[in-house]
């Protein structure tokens, strides 16, 4: 981005290469002035510190050796002698890898079931005509008003009656298809122009072929949103697995972490190593797919 003396910053072609702040005499009022921009960066960095500090501190704690003071203030974030021994210790103390495996199983199952079943439901609701559609919509929308915590006790009784108490299937089952996800897929399918589907019908495509080859390529974005939020929801869920699982051997990661923290809480370094094991998959997922997260929140209040 080298500037030659002939450049005039007001020429329209040079707009792109303008400085990000407003200069004297410029009329672009949506650009901050230089001093405002500096203030903005200062505030952003302060917020950044508030957001990241607990995580960084935890990471640094998990890497510090037993002899190093973790509570000193101002905090030293870079360990003097970094060590991975606490990660080994946490795996010895509780079966944390098998807890992580349980969480991953439940999350993967819920991703698949939610994507498949919500896509089918959303497709039928948006692009097919049938009697009773209003009733189905009403049914789905009414569950939006019903917090899961309200039905906690009875839901447990239902799962128990089905014989799935104290099992991962019991953890997975109630979340297999969320009404919210069906509605999200419905909004995505509604964007499809009817004429394209009519054309597919004339070409002899049946309902399944229309869904697979005409609709699906257009709603894959929303399906990713559903997949991501299902995964995060399952991975982060605490109350339901806590209620369903009674045996420590079957715990998922969140329940296991709470178990670790309340029973082996004397060593913060070990607990910190455990929290990092539970955070890392989420960090990777989030870094890889962050634009879908933003889309998901903006599409209509998916609660993570």
């Amino acid at each position: 981005m080298t500037r030659t003396p002939t450049d005039s910053s007001s020429s329209p072609t040079m707009r792109l290469f303008n400085r990000p702040w407003r200069q004297r005499g410029s009329s672009d009022m949506f650009k901050p002035t230089m001093s405002v921009m500096i203030l903005q960066y200062v505030l952003l960095v302060v917020l950044l510190l508030i957001t990241v500090f607990p995580f960084v501190w935890q990471l640094s704690t998990s890497l510090k050796g037993a002899g190093e003071d973790i509570y000193v203030f101002p905090p030293r974030l870079i360990p003097q002698a970094p060590t991975l021994e606490h990660y080994a210790t946490v795996a010895r103390t509780i079966p944390i890898l098998s807890y992580a495996w349980h969480s991953a199983l439940v999350a993967a199952a819920q991703v698949v079931s939610n994507v498949v079943l919500a896509t089918m439901g959303g497709y039928a609701l948006a692009l097919m005509r049938f009697r009773g559609k209003a009733i189905v919509m009403g049914l789905l929308l009414s569950t939006m008003l019903l917090p899961g915590e309200v039905t906690l006790t009875s839901q447990y009784l239902t799962v128990k009656a089905l014989g799935f108490q104290n099992s991962l299937v019991g953890v997975f089952l109630p979340g297999a298809v969320g009404a919210m996800n069906v509605l999200l897929m419905w909004t995505a399918c509604r964007m499809m122009p009817e004429s394209i589907l009519d054309a597919a019908v004339i070409d002899g495509a049946n309902a399944w072929q229309r869904l697979r080859y005409v609709v699906w390529p257009n709603i894959r974005g929303m399906a990713s949103v559903v997949a991501l939020f299902s995964f995060i929801g399952a991975w982060d869920d605490f109350l339901w697995p806590l209620v369903v699982l009674s045996e420590p051997a079957k715990y998922t990661l969140t329940v296991g972490m709470q178990y670790l923290s309340s029973n082996f809480g004397s060593n913060p370094r070990v607990v910190a190593a455990g929290t990092m094991i539970s955070l890392i998959p989420i960090i990777i997922l989030f870094a890889a797919f962050q634009r879908f997260f933003f889309q998901g929140v903006q599409e209509g209040g998916v609660k993570g």
């Binding site: 957001t51 990241v52 995580f55 995060i232 991975w235 982060d236 605490f238 969140t254 972490m257 709470q258 929290t275 539970s278 955070l279 989420i282 960090i283 997922l285 989030f286 997260f293 993570g304």
Partner: peptide, 9 residues
């Protein structure tokens, strides 16, 4: 980022 981390952690 804090939104995607689990409340327990």
């Amino acid at each position: 980022f804090p939104v995607v981390a689990s409340a327990v952690v």
